[in-house]
Each structure stands twice: as C-alpha cells, then as structure tokens.
Design a binder for these strands. Structure first.
Length: 278
DNA sequence: CTCACATGTTAAG
DNA sequence: TTAACCTGTGAGC
C-alpha cells in the first residue's frame, strides 16, 4: 500500500481521530515498549506526512517517526482494542473511540524536532505538497542527469512519495520509456507529467487506491474482458507483464532497474521519441 | 504447508 | 549489486 498518497491519507485519518486529546500508547509486540510507555497518556498534537514518512507529534516536541517500508500497515479501527492482540503490533494508539495498529514498519522511532527536520530536509519535491521552488530543484537535477527517468522518479531525494506503481503508470500515461535519460525530457513535457501525477496522487489520497486508467481506456470501453487487479486499483501496466496493453494491444514488458520492477508498453513508450501521441 | 513475492530502504560486500 | 528486515498473501504441492 505505501506510496505517498497512503501516508497523507493515514496522517489525515490519525489527525482526525486523535489530534487534540490524550492518547494511550502501547507496543503489544514489545519492540517499541519503552518509548510507548514514555508517551502513554500524552496529548497528540498532530500527524503529518512527508513523502513516505509519517510523523506523529506528541506534547513536548516529541515525534514518532514511522516508515511503512514495503509491507508495513497502520490501520485504524472503531471502538476499543481487542483484549487479545493477533499478530505483531509494534505500536498501538488508542482513545475511547478509535485505535490504530502499526505492523511491519521498517521504522518506528521516537525522535525530536531536529531529527524530524533532518529527515524532511533530505526529501525532494512532493506531489502532494505543491512547492514551486522544490519543483525547480527537482527539474534541475532531472534535466541534467543521465540516469534513467524511471530511476530518478523513485529517488526520494529528488521526488518524494513516488513509488513503483505511480512511476510505472505516470510514465505510461505520458508515453515515456522508463529507461530514457532524465536529460532527454523537455521541461514542458515533464511539467505535464508532474501535473498529472499531482492529480492522480490527490485522487489516491481521497480513495485510498491507485487508479490511473482513463475512462476511454477501461476494458469495457475498449471491448476487452475485464481484468483483475490484485492491488485494489485499475492500472495500465503495473504488474501486467505479458498482458495486452489497454491502448494498443501490445504486450506489457518488465525489467529490473536498481532492484525494482519496471513495467511498460514498448509500443506506447518507445525509447526514441519524446512526444506523446494521443 | 512451504515458498515466492510485494506499492521500500539501508547496510554490507 | 546483494542481502536483510518487517508481515501478509496467494500460488503450488
């Protein structure tokens, strides 16, 4: 689940459920037990996300820094926590109306304002936090880099919050081959791509899903059988290796780049062409 | 039941 | 470049 939209959505949910009141903090699994005890009963000030990082602020400039990694989850449930906890719950927040369980996160640390600021300072432009200066810094790096655009988009120091699904889908929607060097893109083209990414991710915040297929390209509209997505949303190429492209009918390809799977349609996303064609 | 794999990142070699 | 980590799920035997 965890790309930037998931974390902003999560921050919003935690904020709505807990901000402004005292919160019971515990660590049923034990790995966060000492810090949880120190925070137990403190007032929760706010929850905020930056890229894929989440900071839950408690009174006294204390922040719980959470990174979900690949498999982490932080789910909210109505009511009181169950008497018997199933699974490994690293961190649990609770009040009388709601509880939230954190499992499988790669990071769950109690930090101060300085550490928080240091983490945020390392992040690139965030599609969910519009900032012209940050955008220019990002473009400056991309437009001068020989690295593949697929690699650059996943570099959190350049573009924060973009993950493998949005990477694959935004490149498809803009007919850009993932292995094209950053410097081969034109400014206007990347501006269009980014603006579209902002829209897609804001939509993801609202829905909690990643849907990227335009109405005119849905399987129904194209007269194709419906396809099952095992990750909740309707997408063009992500994890569709070997399947027919919804737009041109070509076969979706995959290849590993910097340890992550790329997905693209070789017909819609040729290497040597910089302009989208419908 | 066991195994591979996953929307991620870091550290070691 | 590879392994390691955290957990859950789905495929295959």
């Amino acid at each position: 689940m965890p790309e930037g939209h998931t974390l902003l959505r999560l921050a919003n949910e935690l904020d709505a459920a807990f901000a402004g009141g005292a919160v019971r903090v515990s660590s049923p699994q034990g790995r966060f037990a000492a810090d949880a005890a120190a925070l137990d009963g403190a007032r929760l000030i706010a929850a905020e996300s930056f890229g894929k990082h989440l900071f839950v602020e408690f009174a006294g400039e204390r922040f719980v820094h959470v990174h979900l990694g690949l498999i982490g989850k932080f789910d909210l449930y109505p009511g009181l926590p169950p008497a018997v906890t199933t699974g490994a719950v690293r961190l649990r927040l609770a009040n009388d109306a709601t509880y939230a369980d954190l499992r499988g996160a790669t990071q769950c640390d109690l930090v101060g304002a300085q550490k928080r600021a240091a983490v945020i300072a390392k992040l690139g432009a965030d599609p969910l936090k519009p900032d012209d200066a940050a955008w220019e810094r990002m473009w400056s790096r991309i437009s001068r880099s020989s690295r593949p655009i697929g690699d650059l988009l996943m570099d959190q120091g350049i573009a924060a919050g973009v993950g493998n699904v949005y990477r694959a889908e935004i490149l498809f929607r803009h007919k850009v081959h993932p292995l094209r060097p950053g410097k081969s893109l034109r400014r206007s083209q990347f501006q269009g791509l980014w603006a579209d990414l902002v829209v897609l991710m804001e939509y993801g915040v609202q829905t909690g899903r990643i849907d990227t297929v335009r109405p005119e390209h849905t399987p129904e509209a194209m007269g194709r059988p419906p396809r099952k997505d095992d990750h909740g949303g309707e997408v063009y190429v992500y994890r569709r290796t070997g399947q027919e492209c919804l737009v041109c009918g070509g076969r979706v390809r995959t290849e590993i780049l910097v340890g992550r799977n790329l997905f693209w349609c070789p017909r819609c996303q040729p290497v040597f062409r910089s302009r989208a064609v419908g």
